[in-house]
Design a protein around this nucleic acid. Structure first.
Length: 759
DNA sequence: TTACGCTTAAACTTG
DNA sequence: TTAAGCGTAA
């Protein structure tokens, strides 16, 4: 390899701080980089790659860099390209799944897969599991498909096959194992693999095949892993396997940002790393280039409440910035109102909308904000939701395409056998399923048999018609390019017509999506897939299979760019890795955040705290926290106490903002947004400890009384028991109070009639 | 086959 | 509250 920098490595190490430089220039061997939020982790990763090539004379062919998302992989690739002038395409840079997939394509025979195997996404997997349950005659109430799915994926994530799982005598466990086994059989016969299977097969392929293992061990001398705290048992095992005795492993992660344990990630892998790779150098990146020091201090203080950390404290050379604003809203609506006010102020001061992010714990919380933003004509974008390749009409089209390649693809068959409807009803499909099961053959084969004999004439001809249609589409598209194939299929299958007939906005959108699929294919024809082509031992994949794979592995960006100039709305989880000048963390309430279902076990609570830490460290300049005292949850009004995480922040870093109370102020949607109603903001931030301590009442609300009752007052009612006064409405004899009873829930009562007693 | 009404449950999510 | 899934009726 020629000298990339003419002997001058300064472009690689200039501008790095000491810790970053230590990691980038580490001598040959293993390295664990504990990279705090905003500490330049991607930078370190890419510069390390450049260093390896420039100084260690590593060939791009000898490098594998693994990430979790396509976005991260793309980002890494482009940054390396900018940094060094080498054929980046020769490097294997990709997601765990992408790389595993690549291995399996290359060694499909050894992996015991058909050459054009297809990938099941989680929806496909779910459907297939339901079918397997039906086949086994198991009740879905007893064996909820989602749980079965979780079980199977969990097993695979730990590298376990059904045949290797010990029967512990536990009935439901052994039953689950047999479901797993049956599911696997179906997949194998249909020639499909789910996401977890990609990883498991790739691992087994390497583990059980000495020559393949040796080949890749010799090839990949340098293994780099991003977001190492998110790796599961299998991914880590695979890295260890590939590394062997000779590979050098460089991992970057942050134990404090581990928020995916629920999907199999094991933070423990970070701890194990130094044991599994003796002599590994550990480098901590603690200097933060993103946030103000106030924000960092608060985040540090919060995360210090967790136990078993590797230990890290973020700091910055930057200024301390503005205080963190804390707003205690009356209600969810009030919270929204406050946030919108702050957004307007930000924009009045010349800020941009895409510098603003509203972060919440659960998706349902976006609604109130969306409604308000819509009303105020403020452009916004919500992250998450359905992605392009996950749309029903797109998946229908892809299912036809899958059938073209492989008639035995049962999930695809099931999906489109009667889409659009062609008179093959459930009864008929059930017969096909029954025969397929009895003879252990694919649905397509069973349909072929029944089409000849065993069905009423009408159904038989419908089935034969369907099969003829698929065959005809196959025939007609033999020498066509990808986009023409797809165009033909969406026409001939009747999917376009179906969307047309559906009519309305929905049907129109479906039609446009189908047309967009043809466009996507056209674009894909020109675009060589992520560098795979350069690799001489990668066999050329036929374009259709490649496209289907692309659709499965990159279902269309979720984490896309910030589009125009939009306020960004997303969950705390999807905010990981992003940064924004101004961040709102809303719904900071016990039960919501930390979420009810997490706060029961200590580990769950610590993960929630890490999530909070992730959220706070997204903010560059200005961080807003807010919680509401009442919130409509699942349709009923609930009283909410502030999140414990708020209490864990040093009060001197916070600026507590309170709405000014007006007497007889109903909290209703109508009221919201009418006027500036809150008459300015007071700062009551001094003695918040006692305020929040008992989930009691904020100062500033104390004056408001009706009939001897005040907000926050504990009262008792002869029938409903004890509760807390939340709200007032009306005056005189019409005056009503809202009381949240500990047993009976929240009720509106007329003060004059209800026999309420102050306690 | 479709459409409507009922029941149920309600985190986070990448490939 | 709302959305999805399911069973029944047309």
């Amino acid at each position: 390899m020629q000298d990339l920098f003419g002997g001058d490595v300064s472009p690689i190490i200039d501008g790095l701080n000491d810790a970053q430089r230590e990691a980038v220039t580490a001598p040959p061997g293993h390295v664990l980089v504990l990279a705090g939020a905003g500490s330049g982790k991607t930078r370190v990763l890419t510069h390390r790659l450049a260093w390896l090539m420039a100084v260690e004379r590593a060939s791009p062919f000898s490098i594998m860099a693994v990430t979790f998302t396509n976005k991260a992989a793309a980002e890494m690739r482009s940054r390396i390209e900018r940094l060094v002038d080498v054929p980046v395409r020769a490097m294997w840079v990709g997601t765990f799944h992408g790389i595993a997939h690549r291995l399996l394509r290359q060694h499909w025979q050894e992996a015991n897969l058909p050459q054009s195997f297809q990938i099941l996404d989680s929806e496909d997997q779910h459907r297939l599991i339901r079918r397997v349950l039906k086949n086994l005659d198991l009740d879905e109430d007893r064996w909820p498909p989602r749980q079965v799915q979780g079980f199977i994926n969990g097993c695979k994530d730990e590298g376990k096959r059904p045949q290797h799982m010990a029967d512990t005598g536990d009935y439901s466990r052994s039953q689950l194992i047999s479901i797993y086994a049956a599911y696997e059989e179906h997949c194998q016969r249909a020639g499909v693999v789910d996401f977890a299977e990609l990883l498991l097969r790739a691992h087994e392929l390497c583990r059980d095949n000495e020559s393949i293992l040796q080949h890749y061990r010799r090839r990949f001398r340098y293994l780099l892993v991003d977001e190492f705290q998110d790796t599961n048992a299998l991914q880590y095992a695979w890295i260890r396997l590939l590394a062997g005795e000779t590979g050098q492993v460089f991992v970057v992660g942050d134990d404090d940002q581990s928020i995916y344990s629920w999907r199999g990630a094991q933070v423990g892998n970070i701890l194990s790393f130094t044991k599994d790779f003796p002599g590994a150098l550990t480098v901590r990146l603690e200097q933060n280039y993103r946030s103000t020091s106030r924000i960092l201090k608060a985040a540090n203080a919060l995360i210090a409440n967790n136990s078993g950390r590797m230990g890290k404290e973020l700091w910055t050379e930057g200024n301390q910035g503005e205080p963190i604003e804390l707003y205690a809203a009356f209600s969810g609506y009030d919270e929204v109102h406050h946030v919108l006010g702050r957004i307007r102020t930000w924009m009045d001061q010349g800020g941009r909308r895409d510098e603003i992010a509203i972060l919440y714990r659960s998706n349902a919380m976006s609604r109130l904000f969306e409604e308000a933003l819509l009303r105020e004509d403020i452009p916004y974008r919500v992250y998450g939701g359905l992605r392009f390749f996950e749309r029903a009409e797109i998946k229908d089209a892809l299912a036809y395409l899958r059938l073209l390649r492989n008639r035995h693809d049962d999930p695809a068959f099931e999906r489109v056998v009667n889409t659009p409807t062609r008179g093959i009803g459930n009864t008929t499909v059930d017969k096909i399923r029954g025969l397929a099961r009895a003879q252990n053959i694919a649905l397509w084969q069973a349909a072929g048999i029944l089409g000849e004999d065993g069905l009423p004439p009408r159904a038989a001809s419908a089935v034969k018609g369907f099969m003829a249609l698929v065959d005809a589409m196959d025939e007609a598209t033999r020498d066509k390019v990808l986009s023409e194939i797809i165009d033909h299929v969406i026409q001939a299958s009747g999917l376009i017509e179906m969307a047309d007939k559906e009519g309305g906005e929905k049907g129109q959108a479906r039609k446009e999506n189908l047309e967009e699929l043809v466009n996507a294919a056209r674009g894909y024809e020109r675009l060589p897939e992520d560098g795979a082509e350069i690799d001489e031992d990668m066999p050329e994949l036929d374009p259709l299979t490649a496209f289907l794979t692309h659709a499965a592995l990159e279902a269309g960006e979720h984490q896309g760019e910030a589009w125009d100039d939009c306020v960004q709305l997303m969950t705390l989880h999807s905010a990981k890795g992003l940064e924004f000048p101004m961040v709102f963390m809303v719904g900071m309430e016990e039960g919501l955040f930390p979420h009810q279902r997490s706060s029961e076990q200590p580990e769950g609570l610590e993960e929630e705290r890490r999530l909070c830490y992730v959220g706070m460290t997204r903010a560059m300049q200005k961080l807003h926290l807010s919680h509401a005292e009442t919130r409509r949850l699942h349709g009923s009004e609930t009283y909410c106490s502030p999140s414990r995480f708020i209490r864990e922040l040093p009060s001197e870093l916070l600026n507590e903002i309170r709405p000014q109370i007006q007497v007889s102020r109903p909290v209703s949607q109508k009221q919201y947004g009418q006027r500036g109603g809150y008459g300015g903001y007071g700062n009551y931030g001094r003695n918040k400890q006692e305020t929040y301590g008992g989930g009691g009442l904020p100062p500033g609300m104390q004056e408001t009384t009706i009939g001897g009752l005040k907000l926050g007052q504990r009262v008792s009612h002869p029938k409903f028991g004890e509760g807390v006064v939340l709200n007032f409405e009306g005056e005189g004899s019409r005056a009503r109070v809202q009381v949240n009873f500990s047993d009976a829930g929240s009720k509106w009562l007329v003060v004059g009639y209800a026999k309420l007693e102050a306690i």
